[in-house]
Design a protein around this nucleic acid. Sequence first.
DNA 1: AGTGAGAGCCAC
DNA 2: AAACGTGGCTCTCACT
Length: 580
Amino acid sequence: MEERTQDYRFVTTAEDLAGVAKTLQGAEVIGLDLETTALSPRDGRVRLLQLATLEETFIVDVFEAVDLSPLTEILEGGPVKVGHNLKFDHQFLDALHSVSLSPLFDTMLAAQVIDGGNYAASYSLESVAERYVDESLDKSEQRSDWSGKLSEAQLAYAAQDARVLLSLHERLAASLEEEELERISRIEFEAIPTIARMELAGIKLDVARWKELEVTVRERRDRAAERLESFFPPPEGVLPLEGLGPRLNLNSPKQITDAFRTLGIDLSDTKVWTLLKVDHPAAKALLEYRELQKKLGTYLETYPGFISPKTGRIHANFLQCRVPTGRLACTAPNIQQIPHEDEFRRCFVAEDGNTLVIADYSQIELRILAEVSEDPAFVGAFQRGVDLHSLTAATMYNVSMDEVTKVQRTAAKRINFGLMYGRGARSLSAQLGTDEERGRQLIDEYFANYPKVQRFLQRTANRAMRDRTLRTLAGRLRKFGNDPVADDRGAMRREAMNFPIQGAASDIAKLALIYVREELEGLDARLINSIHDEFVVECADERAGEVSEKTRAAMVRAGEEILEKVPVEVEVEVSREWRK
DNA sequence: AGTGAGAGCCAC
DNA sequence: AAACGTGGCTCTCACT
């Protein structure tokens, strides 16, 4: 070793790397951390790789020892690699050194899983170390320049970061065991490589098509704005110059409310639901303006800016444990909220010679409700392959299955979904356009047909109020705060009713993330988007059939591992464009 | 100039 | 309280 101090060994040559590998061979756990010259492997390189065991800490200068192959066996198998936000480390090592870290223990995800959705303000290594092992870290070197000659302070910092992971692991692993969170944490850890690769792969936006859409939407927006403004003539008597500037900001709810008052219309707010009830052409114009402005501002004008100049693709950021129910969240940009219309989704395309495989779970949340409630009619419908919305409509309206009208099925569908979210009579009747009495009647009717669904929802809400804690089928924990104000009781009960359903769907989706990667290994196919119950895979044209079946198989396997009584179905489409 | 709350709306 | 759960993003507006 070139340099040796009490705290760490600094490694710079291939020969030394081989020695490190030998030393680490028998280790059970290794604290692993990287220092990089940028936050994305597209923009920066790995400078340091730190590996810590209880006995010693190695700091590898990756600028000097670029070839990490002596460590491959250690990094891709054997000891558990403990890291903080391993998605980051996985991406750098995968993209720049062809190393796929495994098996994993992520201290950030562990802390989040333990907190059960009652999230702390920060899950930085510094914060988690302070909370769990009462150790305060000096992070002043974190954003220092890692590309030049390294100072003693930088190396000491790097070594400390890797070492603290070991004590954190010990403490967090004990908590996971105590709280019976081993299964769910294992799912989270094993899903990391899939999510890391999904971000690296990115998604292709057909910019020409997108810009074309942008132009037409802008024209439509401008026309809607003109029409809207024509209802609000400028006050008389203004001097010519004063009338020139923009006088009414159409994006300001406050100014819109004031403007409508001049028409004799008092708006409580300017939400869609409110405006729909206003029988005035200005309200229609505003609704149209709003829709187009949203599409322009949020999507059309913004998304091209997210395209990486290095890859020509959009690399979104998926947040693995931010949502209490276990769903992924997505930012910068959120590619889980692209408008569903064809004109938007058809702009997301496969590369030349490739195609998209779009696979989604069929009614997964309703299947989960059937499973957890054990309602015989509900379970039976899925087992027989009967359309649940039609069945619900038939029983609620007292007609036979083939007499159910479209309107009745739509109403039944809304009830099926609404009640999963703890929806009440008033809001249901509002959506259905009936009075509250009729809404009450429909709900009573519904629960008379599916008594165990009602019992499940009530019991779940009661248990949450009593125990302040709930679990999903795979064991994900949700802790509820201790002091709900009286006003929040309803909200908490609704959240509680929804958690086991949305949460189990997330359990299944995360398990599927693991299986999809296993199935597609070595196939020239990669996951490029995950929208809760839908996966988008991009693959070589000639692989489409195989990839479709393997993706479906992975998703069904995940579903059936969690659901025992109810079958799971996955629908798969193949298209060059992202659409159904 | 940056920040944060509020309003509103996109997805599942 | 349009009381339907989970998010993220854009815009306004008031504040520092």
